[in-house]
Amino acid sequence: MITDVEGVKFVLHNEGVLFETGYPQSLKDVLGERAMLFHHGDLQKRMHAMLKRFVSSTPLKKYLTREMELLTKQGMSTWSRGQRILLQDEIQRITHDFLMKQLFGLEPGKLSTTILEEFNTLMAGIIGVPMMIPGTPYFKAMKAREKLSQIIMDMVAARRARPDIEHKDILNALIEEVKEEDGDVEKIIIDNVLVNIANAEGIPAIVIAFAVKNLSETPKALEHIREENLAIKRGKDSNEGLSWNDYMSLEFTQAVFNETLRLANGAQGVMRKALKDVEYRGYIIPKGWTVLPYFLNIHFDENMFPNPTKFHPWRWLEKNIPSTYVLPFGGGSRLCPGQELARVQTAVFLHHFVTQFKWDAEPETVINFPKISTRNHVPVVLYDLH
């Protein structure tokens, strides 16, 4: 385990030279060996570049902001006032619908719900003994993988049967990227679709839920973010949406996002395997050993983050924090290409949430295993702000 800034940087920036990914077999079985998370070389680089292109162009950024806003408004319109809801679950429905639209061009409905249910079963079994024993989380995860694989391949078959229909989604970009690839193209598609769902499915909902939890516990921060977003709203017509420029101007909202991820990072570390004997600071990391760059230790460094356990978003406005201390999306050549998308989702949701609602929140705690979440899924009772 490596817990200091320079050590983590050393490992992440020597990908493919001194280290390669070293995740457990159960994770590889469930998500697939050909997924970009585990793969090396040209295919991994092309997949990473393809995803970055999909979410980074200016027209797409504007489109994705509008799409997230539309789904957020639709989701919030169904919430009852004065009744208890589990906010994390409600947020996941919104972010899931957004992901399904961008990944498959899929509208909310039965198929989208089925994918979410099967995927939750799949993710519950990613860490475990890789043995097909009925009733175990791993067994259930592998069965869920079979069902999801069939759904994905049915979509691919339908598109190949009607090549005249244009699809502007990640699945189509993936099909085009690998059509000349050697080997089992169908497996490459399935594995990389599943790893994209894994990267984008649960984390945005959890980040947003944590942000609401932190704001509920910090009235001064809630007042600040509400005023910032109301100022944007006052300058618009009632039916006018949040633009990309508006999103970029929400400095305190971005600080809330950064501080939330610092305190509760979805990726607490990554696993790498030494390709050879590696010497670092007088120590030898033997060839084949797994190395865990641990991000949370850096996020709680008292020298960079005074009073590190406190939610204090103003710290991101008070000084320039080096990127080496901010690792919610990994680093090096495997830096998550969807990080800006997660920021957009969070900013759009918080904009509409804090400008429409006030709420009573029940006490909430964080759990960290097998994945980071909230214990009670953020129960709140909502009321209209005005």
Rank of each mutant, 00 (worst) to 15 (best):
I284N: 13
Y283K: 12
Y283M: 12
R262F: 09
K287Q: 12
D277L: 01
L275V: 06
G288W: 08
Q268W: 04
L261F: 07
T260F: 00
L263V: 11
I284Y: 10
E279Q: 13
V278M: 08
L275C: 09
I285S: 02
P286G: 01
D277A: 03
V270Q: 09
I285R: 06
A267C: 06
P286W: 07
A264R: 14
G269M: 05
A264V: 15
Y280C: 00
M271Y: 15
R262N: 10
V270W: 00
L275A: 09
V278Y: 08
K273E: 14
K276V: 06
G269F: 14
A264S: 15
L263T: 14
R272N: 11
E279P: 00
T260D: 03
W289H: 14
D277F: 05
V270D: 12
N265A: 08
P286F: 02
M271N: 15
N265F: 03
K273L: 10
A274C: 04
Y283A: 14
G266N: 12
P286C: 00
M271L: 15
M271Q: 14
A274L: 00
K287I: 02
Q268H: 00
Y280H: 08
E279F: 01
I285Y: 11
L275H: 10
A267I: 15
L275E: 08
G266W: 12
A267K: 09
G282N: 03
T260E: 02
V270P: 01
A274Q: 01
G266E: 05
K287S: 06
Y283E: 13
R272I: 11
R281Q: 13
G269C: 04
K273M: 13
L263S: 07
A274T: 03
A267P: 08
G266Y: 11
A267W: 08
L263D: 14
A267F: 13
A274P: 01
L263A: 07
A274I: 00
Y283W: 13
A274E: 02
A267S: 13
K273V: 13
N265V: 12
L261R: 09
G266K: 05
G282D: 03
L261I: 06
Y280A: 09
M271F: 15
M271A: 14
Y283L: 12
K287P: 04
G288R: 04
R262L: 04
I284E: 12
A264T: 15
A274K: 02
K287M: 05
R272P: 09
Y280L: 06
Q268L: 00
R281K: 15
R272Y: 12
G282V: 05
L261P: 11
K287C: 05
G266F: 14
G266Q: 08
G288A: 02
A274W: 02
G282A: 05
K273S: 14
W289L: 05
I285K: 05
T260W: 07
K276W: 03
G266I: 09
Y280W: 13
